[in-house]
Amino acid sequence: MSLLLFGILAVIALITAALMVTARNLVHAVLMMVANFGTVAIMYITLSAPFVAVVQVAVYAGAIMVLFLFVVMLLGEQQLSFDEPFAGQRMAAGVLGLLLAIMLLVTLFTASPAVLQTGLTAEQIGRENAQRVGELLYTQYLLPFEATSILLLIAMVGAVVLAKRRLL
C-alpha cells in the first residue's frame, strides 16, 4: 500500500515539477510548484514526519506561494520564451546533468546507509512528533535556532530596504 502510495505521489511530484520548470505562464508555474510541494508534504506524513509536513504546507504552500504570486501579479502577465541565447548552454547543461545523475544514482544504489541506534522506533518518531522536534530545537539546536531567528530578522529588514522605491 505504502509503496503504491509512494509511486503515485512520486509520479505526481515529478510531473508537477516538470510542468513547473517548463511552464510558459508564470502563474501556472507557481501553481505547479505549490502542487509539487503539497505532494511532498503528503510524502512527509508517510515518512512519519507530520510536523515537517505541516510546516511545509504552512510555509511553502502558504507564505512562499503567496509571495511568488504577489510578485508575479505585481510584475504583470507575461509570456515566457524558450530561446537560448548562449551557444552550448543547453549542450553543456545536458552533459553535466547526465554526469551528475549517473554519479548520484550509482552512489545511491551502491551505498548502504548505516542505521543508527537512536533507541526509537518508526512509530515513536511519528507519535508526538512535534513535541519531540520542539524539544530538540530548544535544547540541542538552540543556538542554530536563535541564529536562524536573527537571519530571518535580517532578511526581513533587507527585503524592506530592497523593495523600497528609493534606496536609503
Partner: peptide, 23 residues
C-alpha cells in the same frame, strides 16, 4: 555576467567535487 552561466560553472564544480569524493 550571465547568472545562468555562473550556475553552469557551479554545476561543473559540483560534478568534479562529487567525482572527487566518491570515485
Amino acid at each position: 555576467g550571465y547568472v545562468r552561466n555562473y550556475a553552469l560553472w557551479m554545476l561543473v564544480g559540483v560534478v568534479v567535487l562529487i567525482f572527487w569524493f566518491f570515485y
